[in-house]
């Protein structure tokens, strides 16, 4: 019994299909609890008033935007090393979710920044690196869309994902060098000293858990539908010949 058994598309679909509704409803329930807790049962911040509450959407989506890319990187490496098609398709399935997460983070950040900093957008290092990350996602999905042969597409996007990861990290630090920012430092790290107060911390953790579950459920669903799409293509090709 090893994890690679699930690289078999049939086994993958058979295992994940019953899991998806649980994950999806779990995500919805946890997000509902976390967001209601965050929105209605936490005090307003001393300086930021009630605008602080967008935190519960902004932080999880921003974390997921980065984590989705890391997941795509791992899936790409698995594809390049072990040639499991499910892995390549999972990376493909994750990219649009990453785009949406990046957009949510940028949008909620803009909505939050307007009353706090007096501007929707500033060329702050974090904002700029997110914009660059968004461009990387766009390039990645565009490359998937442009190539017809699925194996070629999987190979090239995997190579692009690896090179892109190196450059994304490089850009992250280059942007720091280029401009000092308005954005506050990390508010959720494992180092408890610099965290936000516990009142905000617990609902935020719940929301992060909800976002992670939502992402897992969506990736499993999208991967399964990519597998089915490829089967349909194969059947069509066979019927034509």
């Amino acid at each position: 019994m090893s994890i690679w058994e699930y690289a078999n598309p049939k086994k993958f679909i058979a295992t994940t299909t019953p899991l998806v509704p649980w994950l999806l409803w779990g995500a919805i329930a946890i997000l509902t609890v976390g967001l209601i807790w965050g929105f209605f049962f936490t005090p307003d911040d001393v300086r930021q008033g009630s605008t602080v509450k967008i935190f519960y959407l902004h932080v999880p989506s921003a974390m997921m935007a980065i984590n989705v890319w890391i997941m795509m990187l791992i899936a790409s490496l698995v594809w390049l090393v072990r040639r499991h098609h499910v892995s390549a398709l999972a990376a493909k399935a994750a990219a649009p979710i990453g785009i949406v997460m990046t957009l949510i983070a940028l949008f909620t950040g803009a909505v939050w920044g307007q009353p706090m900093w007096g501007t929707w957008w500033a060329w702050d290092p974090r904002l700029t690196s997110f914009l660059i990350l968004f461009l990387f996602y766009l390039g990645y999905t565009a490359l998937w869309a442009a190539i017809e042969d699925p194996d070629t597409a999987a190979d090239l996007t995997s190579v692009l994902c690896i090179v892109g990861s190196v450059f994304a990290v490089l850009s992250r630090y280059a942007v720091n060098f280029w401009n000092q920012g308005l954005h506050q430092p990390a508010s959720l790290s494992l180092d408890k000293e610099e965290n936000v107060a516990d009142v905000f911390w617990y609902p935020a953790l719940v929301c992060i858990a909800g976002f992670v579950l939502l992402f897992v459920a969506l990736v499993l669903m999208r991967t399964a539908s990519e597998i089915r799409l490829r089967r349909m293509r194969a059947l069509e090709a066979r019927m034509r010949s």
Binding site: L135, A146, F167
Partner: peptide, 25 residues
Amino acid sequence: VTVGLKRGGLLMSLLVLPLYVPTLI
């Protein structure tokens, strides 16, 4: 990456320009 594509030019600029960011900065 884009050599096999028919109209790779535009896609290539989308892929390459974000990679240029650190050098430009």
